[in-house]
Design a protein around this nucleic acid. Structure first.
Length: 831
RNA sequence: GGGCGGAUGGCGGAAUUGGUAGACGCGCCAGACUUAGGAUCUGGUACCGCAAGGUGUGGGGGUUCGAUUCCCCCUCCGCCCACCA
């Protein structure tokens, strides 16, 4: 079938997308005896339209999935929908449409966009987190984790988002505002459900060392977030009261402690406050209490504090240590109290200066004398040598720290401790559109309102149908509380009246384990089959944005460990190799957004150029992990490239289709074959190391070479050209799969390209007969000589020294040394 | 303040373990084919210089026969975290 002269992507792409789907070409499990690859992109929230970030995300995964399929792997490449969540609920409040309806529409539209890109998904495994079929397993895990003490109810300070009108997790607070809606976050005292993720802090931290194929920036962010810090808790005795316990990482500066500071909401504040100081302290505490986190810790906020009137006693020197409270001390970290060492801490220095508190240096730089406290201009925060520190004087900081800690421990005055920045994951949400928390409250069986888990047999607890106008008011009360048919139920223990929990789960629960559900998406006896988990886990390649580094990806790693402990999965870690894809900015370099009017819609681009052009452009624009700015001109370039391919293969088709040759290869035909095999080598290596942009460049080079070649006339040349076109088609498959199949079909191929084997290069054909050697004199390039491949140093030297320019640089000089690098260069070191 | 990235032509970006800097694309210049070209094809294109030659990977040092690549110091940009004791 001759290839049409005109390249009409829209027509042919639709045709192939339909055929692929009809054939079930991307079903996982088609090669049960082959090694597996699990390629996954982060679960999308189905907003109505796909944006460029999605395109890049799915494309990076798709290139890999197709490549692995051609390499003979059994590939699992699924997609589903993170369909619970606030945007749908907020839209419902606004226009009265039920979130389920809106979500269904959005998924249909989004999926249409996804399909139009020709992505190789196994749609038989599509999952949707808002369906009971899925979220019942969230509930199942909840109950299992409750049994293991990994879920608990607490009454504590929570982060209340004033925009989303719900509690959010620590990870979801950025700069004191909500990461989703940017509204201020308040601290509120209320009950909530939490996952005991901190039980795994150490494991999650250590696990990072094994994640060698994760980007450093992501593991770095996680390390930072987990925030392990080693130090010591020290008790400062107080007369007529319990001691004040502080946490410090700098026990070596203990002798420099001149006062203590507590957080305003520290439990001991009132008992330590003397009558005389009471009005001032209470005023200060009240003032701090009304500030939200962002206000209290805004950048540049002045340090303020008040004296409680009480003193503690220094544990080693016995000196009186005044106790203050101050705005900058955080009650939730360490013990909520700090020992102030103004000489060696910037914050303490500023505070001491302001309130005229003593500053006592006890550590000096190794190479200078001990400073006088009055001449200290700033805190000396580095490590050094101790002085004025009793028997520890003269020790380096690290050793001093060890010995002081040992003494404190020996005397029962302190304890070496590890403190973490990470907190437990609070997942209660006071919203409707999420997984109901499967808990009942029965006044008879559960007088303390701790909650009774819904028995496994009664799961799922299904989200009730509601009257949207009536229930979703956006007033900040859990909407489910307004649905009596949901709330009122019977107690599984006593059979009496009980009430259901009305809060729902954070949607990060849905995305914490969905990758395992793809293994058995419709199983109704377990979240997934163990045999499938053994076959497919862990995920080989996971692609998504770095903005999930400390939310999703941390919960994900936590859940993976829990699943392993439940005996469900084989590995601690969920993902072997992570790609944190860069952002696609607008052509003006700003983030694509309606606000800047620089949004490029993928759907309209596909309409204009076809999916293959968009795919080639995005792959070619830059390395996956780097941001790039959109460029209309470069898209044109991608389209031009594909059309060049098209024209080339169409023109040559009549004379080369089916051409074979058995004799010896030489001349033009041999050169053509070399170009082909070098290209195969280059593209293969590029894809293996995730360098899709250079892989495309490699294919472009081959196309250029084929254009430059003479029109094939001999049988050998025709066969060589046929081989080139065949290789070109296959190499193009991950990037422009529709065109690849269309060309292959035109050339009489009956098998889909993605089902064919990735081409192998012939090692003999990637070496030339002649190698150009760079000839340097004293490291400067002076000539290039062409020498037969396999020539040794002597022959290369002969050729080099015959060169006029080289001769000129060598005459009259003594050659002191000659550096010979096989296949690359020759360097004369002369003097 | 801490952590992690990054800086290469007019632009996006190449350069396996130190070995000919600038692949590939865009843009630009010239030519061919054309009634025409914003289509297509061919050639050119780091900078200075007529040339010989010289200079060049943010800046400064160092190691080396040789450094975009390794080491030290500095500047700027991006992201993340942040009064975390």
């Amino acid at each position: 079938m001759p290839i049409n002269e005109r390249y009409e992507p829209l027509v042919l792409e639709k045709k192939w997308q339909e055929r692929w789907e009809r054939e079930g070409l991307f079903r996982a499990g088609r090669r049960p005896n082959a090694p597996k690859k699990y390629v996954l992109e982060m679960l999308p929230y189905p907003s109505g339209k796909m944006h460029m970030g999605h395109v890049r995300n799915y494309l990076l995964g798709d290139i890999y999935a197709r490549y692995f399929a051609m390499k003979g792997f059994d590939v699992l490449h699924p997609l589903g929908w993170d369909s619970f969540g606030l945007p749908a609920e907020n839209a419902a409040i606004k226009d009265g449409v039920h979130p389920a309806v809106r979500t269904r529409e959005n998924i249909a539209s989004f999926k249409h966009d996804v399909i139009s890109l020709g992505l190789s998904y196994d749609w038989s495994r599509e999952l949707n987190s808002c369906e009971p079929e899925y979220y019942r397993w969230n509930q199942w895990f909840f109950v299992k984790m409750l049994e293991k003490g990994l879920v608990y109810r607490r009454f504590s300070k929570v982060n209340w988002c004033t925009g989303c009108l719900t509690v959010i997790a620590n990870e979801q607070v950025k700069d004191g505002t909500c990461e989703r809606c940017d509204s201020p976050v308040q601290e509120r005292e209320m009950p909530e459900w939490a996952f005991r993720i901190t039980r795994y802090s150490q494991a999650l931290l250590e696990g990072l060392d094994g994640l060698t194929a994760w980007p450093d920036r992501v593991t770095g962010m996680q390390r930072n977030w987990i925030g392990r810090s080693e130090g010591v808790e020290v008790d400062f005795p107080v007369e007529n009261g319990s001691p004040v316990r502080v946490f410090t990482t700098r026990a070596d500066t203990l002798f420099g402690c001149t006062y203590l500071v507590l957080a305003p909401d520290h439990a001991q504040v009132l008992s330590l406050t003397t009558a005389a100081q009471r009005p001032e302290v209470e005023g200060f505490v009240a003032e701090m209490a009304v500030l939200d986190h962002a206000q209290r810790f805004a950048e540049g906020t002045e340090k303020r504090g008040v004296f409680t009137g009480s003193c503690a006693v220094h544990p080693l020197t016995g000196a009186p240590i005044p106790i203050w409270i101050a705005n900058f001390v955080i009650s939730g970290y360490g013990t909520g109290a700090v020992m102030s060492v103004p000489a060696h801490d910037e914050r303490d220095f500023a505070f001491a200066r302001k309130y005229g508190l003593p500053i006592k240096p006890v550590v000096r730089p190794v190479d200078s004398a001990a400073p006088n406290s009055s001449e200290l201009q700033a805190a000396f925060t580095a490590e050094g040598l101790l002085f004025d520190s009793g028997s520890y004087t003269g020790l380096p900081s690290a050793e001093g720290r060890r010995k002081i800690t040992a003494e404190l421990e020996a005397e029962g005055k302190g304890k070496a401790t590890v403190t973490w920045r990470q907190r437990d994951w609070g997942f209660s949400r006071q919203r409707y559109w999420g997984t109901p928390i499967p808990i009942l409250y029965c006044e008879r069986c559960d007088p303390n309102r701790e909650g009774i888990p819904v028995p496994e047999a009664d799961l799922p607890v299904v989200l009730p149908e509601i009257d949207v106008q009536e229930v979703l008011t956006g007033k900040g009360q859990p909407p489910l509380a307004k649905v009596p048919s949901f709330v009122n139920t019977t107690c599984p223990k006593c059979g009496g009246a009980a009430r259901r929990e009305v809060e729902t789960m954070d949607t990060f629960v849905d995305s914490a384990w969905y990758y395992a559900r793809y293994l058995s998406p419709h199983l109704d006896t377990a979240p997934f089959e163990a045999t499938a988990a053994n076959r497919w886990l862990p995920i080989d390649i996971y692609v998504g944005g770095p903005e999930h580094a400390v939310m999703h990806l941390l919960y994900f790693r936590f859940w993976s460990r829990v699943m392993k402990e439940l005996g469900l999965t084989p590995s601690d870690e969920p993902v072997t190799r992570l790609i944190a894809q860069g952002i696609v900015n607008g052509s003006d370099g700003r983030k694509m957004s309606k606000r800047w009017g620089n949004v490029i819609s993928p759907a309209s681009l596909v309409q204009k150029y076809g999916a293959d052009t968009v795919r080639v452009y995005v792959a070619f624009a830059g390395p996956p992990e780097r941001d790039f700015d959109w460029s209309d001109d470069q898209v044109e370039g991608a389209f031009r490239f594909l059309r060049r391919v098209w024209t080339l293969v169409a023109q040559h088709q009549p004379e080369i289709q089916g051409a074979t040759y058995e004799g010896a290869w030489e001349g033009e035909a041999l050169e053509l074959r070399r170009a082909t095999h070098k290209c195969i080598q280059r593209v293969t290596q590029s894809i293996e190391r995730l360098s899709f942009n250079t892989a495309v460049a490699g294919v472009m080079e081959l196309v250029n070479a084929l254009y430059a070649a003479e029109k094939p006339s001999t049988q050998a040349e025709k066969a060589a050209m046929a081989e080139a076109v065949s290789a070109l088609t296959l190499l193009l498959t991950p990037f422009a799969p529709h065109m690849a199949d269309e060309i292959a079909e035109g050339y009489g191929q009956e098998v889909f390209t993605v089902s064919r084997a990735w081409p192998e290069f012939d090692p003999a054909l990637v070496v030339d007969d002649v190698i150009p050697y760079a000839v340097q004199v004293n490291g400067k390039l002076r000539a290039e000589v062409r020498v037969a491949t396999g020539a040794g140093e002597q022959e290369v030297r002969q050729a080099a020294e015959a060169d006029e320019r080289v001769k000129a640089y060598l005459t009259g000089k003594t050659v002191r040394k000659v550096v010979f690098v096989p296949k690359r260069l020759l360097n004369y070191v002369v003097g």
